[in-house]
């Protein structure tokens, strides 16, 4: 009996070896297990957590599916991990990137696993903002030099006696702690931990007509709901941007938002890759879709359907000839 079990287990072991294959398994080349389930050509798009990126993805997805016959999977990943996933081919495309020079150097220049795929057509801008109802009453708040005067009014239980500067998701690019320090502002940066939490808090403040100071960015649909005025920070300059992160003392640069593609997909992606490279719209068009998603609570698919129905002349130009 022992002989037989021994034999059996060897056979089992051999079988297992055969199954897994003795060869190498490159885990960086594995697609999602849910991909291609319907046996169609599939494109996987990375959705970033902010609504603008959701709008890009929703419209691209709809056109890919309806006009080009692809199946589109979307995965929500944070910005930096998305670069890694893109490099590994777990996603084919990042539709909206806000500038990650470190990742660009690593993956585009060194490893050559990612290639740029053109611009989104939208210019991104990060800054500090106060609500319009507050700026109307206190016009001088829009200059950073006067911020300390108002610190008292921006106080919350979380900011410990100082004014509160509301910051967003940990995945966003921010120098706010350095800025507060270097500009000698009597403010405390409070990290809301996610964009959802930040938006909810801003809406709440706006409903109560309370003053607040927040890190925010353009284009963003929330401006339609809560009009805000930007606070002017010291002018941006190349020298300032070159400083160490903790010494930065000037405003954020404006970034043309870019698209990136997995290198393999760019070569073999056929019409889908071509279409995604051509995809380009402006802030107003993107906001129209974002607003339908975030404000009117339409599902991204539905919002995209509405926009696509009304703007055929725009997206027809993106289709590969």
């Amino acid at each position: 009996m022992n002989r037989r079990t021994a034999l059996k287990s060897t056979a089992l072991g051999l079988g297992a070896l055969l199954l897994t294959g003795c060869g190498a398994a490159d885990m960086t080349q594995q697609a999602s297990p849910y991909a291609n389930a319907a046996g169609a050509k599939t494109v996987t798009l990375s959705v970033q957590s902010w609504v603008g990126a959701q709008a890009d993805v929703a419209v691209a997805k709809l056109i890919l599916e309806r006009e080009l016959g692809y199946r589109v999977d979307t995965v929500q990943v944070d910005e930096v991990p998305a670069w890694d996933a893109l490099s590994q081919g777990r996603v084919d495309m990042i539709m909206e990137d806000w500038g990650h020079p470190e990742q660009e150097a690593r993956y585009v220049k060194d490893k050559k696993t990612i290639v740029p795929a053109g611009e989104v057509g939208v210019i991104g801008h990060i800054g500090w903002w106060v609500p319009k109802y507050f700026a109307d009453k206190h016009p001088d708040v829009t200059d950073w030099r006067n911020l300390n005067k108002y610190a008292d009014q921006f106080k919350t239980p979380e900011s410990g006696g100082k004014g509160q500067l509301l910051d967003g998701s940990p995945s966003y690019v921010t120098n706010d702690k350095a800025l507060v320090n270097n500009l000698k502002l009597n403010y405390q940066v409070v990290f809301s931990g996610s964009e959802a939490a930040q938006i909810t808090q801003i809406q709440r403040f706006a409903k109560e007509k309370k003053p607040f100071l927040t890190y925010w960015y353009k284009p963003q649909w929330l401006f339609e709901q809560v009009p805000m005025v930007e606070v002017k920070l010291p002018k941006y300059s190349e020298e300032c941007a070159a400083k160490a992160p903790e010494d930065i003392d000037c405003e954020y640069p404006t970034t043309p938002l870019a698209k990136y593609m997995n290198a393999n997909f760019a070569k073999k992606g056929g019409k889908a890759a071509q279409f995604l490279k051509n995809f380009k719209w402006d802030a107003e068009q993107q906001n129209a879709v974002s607003l339908m998603i975030a404000d009117q609570k339409l599902s991204p698919d539905e919002a995209a359907r509405k926009w696509v129905a009304a703007n055929e002349n725009v997206w027809r130009a993106w289709l590969p000839k």
Binding site: T20, A25, D26, M27, T28, Q30, A31, P33, A37, Q88
Partner: peptide, 28 residues
């Protein structure tokens, strides 16, 4: 080294593969 080192190619790669295959199997 994730796409080149033997540790990943011959060990973690297979684990990852096995997971993807089995999830896909059940899903299908």
């Amino acid at each position: 080294n994730r796409d080149g080192h033997p540790l990943f190619l011959y060990f973690f790669g297979h684990i990852s593969n096995a997971v993807v295959l089995s999830v896909r199997g059940v899903y299908l």
